[in-house]
């Protein structure tokens, strides 16, 4: 039986209008979902669909206007409980520059555990381990501004790992990266989930990334409009397109040539099409 790590119950979140007259709006309305321990969940939606707001509710940066978010039974209604939640759920943001605090890579990774009051020798151990698991150990003495975007994001991930949180929420971690950086980060994320058993919530608008998840939550207009395995979700091409999304090219090609089931990767597509052509020829 899978254990529920985060439970989101009927959550509504309203951005208050500010003094300068920018109107307030409802970013999330009556959202309910849950994240299981060890799961890899992708939250898919176009810009402004409410997915980033949901992410910020998961580790108590925002407090729901209505409804509750509980992490291992903790509802963050006070600041102390908010900190408790953030010890369980870590977060990586979109802009790699704006989340690195220190002037040296390893000092930055140490920042979280230092805040938690961990013993110095233990911090050293965690920092080295975290840097190794994101393949940045060799660069531990570099200055962050000399790193590429993908490397900076990996440092940010290591920073969360060193806090030993059970869950890591990544809010569009690849949106500002180039293809190489994107694949570096995604490989790292997958490894965290598979090898270290860390629960991953990936907020994204890239279909190719959502495909890698165990479960996909599709959002539009502040609501969850669909939820299921990647195969279930990506078999609904028209539905996704009507919500400003798309399906991976491999999936689309296989659908167009009439291959049954939902194909999600290049390798699988090649295989299926090869046998289709081969079968037809033979």
């Amino acid at each position: 039986m899978s254990e529920k790590l985060i439970e989101v119950n009927n959550v509504t979140y309203v951005y208050e209008p500010d003094e300068e007259g920018a109107p307030g709006y409802t970013a999330l309305s009556n959202v309910s979902t849950h994240i299981d321990k060890g799961e890899f969940v992708a939250v898919l939606g176009h810009n402004g669909s409410g997915k980033s707001t949901l992410a910020k509710l998961l580790n108590a940066i925002y407090e729901p206007t209505e409804g509750t978010v509980s992490v291992k039974g903790i509802v963050a209604d006070t600041e102390e409980k908010g900190d408790e939640v953030r010890r369980i759920v870590g977060m990586v943001f979109q802009n790699p520059d704006n989340q690195i605090v220190a002037t040296i890579v390893e000092d930055d990774v140490a920042f979280g555990p230092e805040n938690l009051g961990v013993e110095p020798s233990e911090i050293r151990r965690r920092v080295d381990e975290a840097l190794k698991s994101v393949n940045m150990y060799e660069m531990r003495e570099r200055e962050p501004h000399r790193l590429s975007g993908g490397q900076k994001q990996r440092v940010a991930i290591a920073g969360v790992l060193a806090m030993q949180t059970e869950c890591i929420v990544l809010d569009e971690p690849t949106a500002m990266l180039d293809p190489m950086g994107r694949s570096e980060v995604m490989k790292t994320v997958c490894r965290l989930n598979e090898e270290l058993g860390i629960t991953v919530v990936l907020i994204t608008h890239f279909m190719e990334e959502a495909v890698l998840a165990d479960r996909v939550i599709v959002m539009d207009n502040g609501r969850i409009i669909d939820e299921g395995t990647p195969a279930e979700i990506f078999s609904k091409a028209d539905f996704l397109r009507s919500h400003g999304l798309d399906v991976p090219q491999s999936t689309e090609l296989c659908r167009l040539v009439g291959i049954d089931g939902c194909v999600l990767s290049v390798g699988e597509a090649v295989e299926k099409i090869a046998s289709l052509i081969g079968g037809a020829a033979g």
């Binding site: 580790n59 010890r87 870590g90 802009n95 704006n98 605090v101 000092d107 805040n115 009051g117």
Partner: peptide, 27 residues
């Protein structure tokens, strides 16, 4: 300002609450 705001969020997420109770890796 945007950077400062995002940085503050990121620091909060990493449980930064000021100098109280902090340890340091490099002694």
């Amino acid at each position: 300002f945007r950077r400062a705001y995002e940085l503050a969020l990121a620091m909060t997420c990493r449980c930064y609450t000021g100098g109280e109770g902090r340890t340091r890796m490099k002694q």
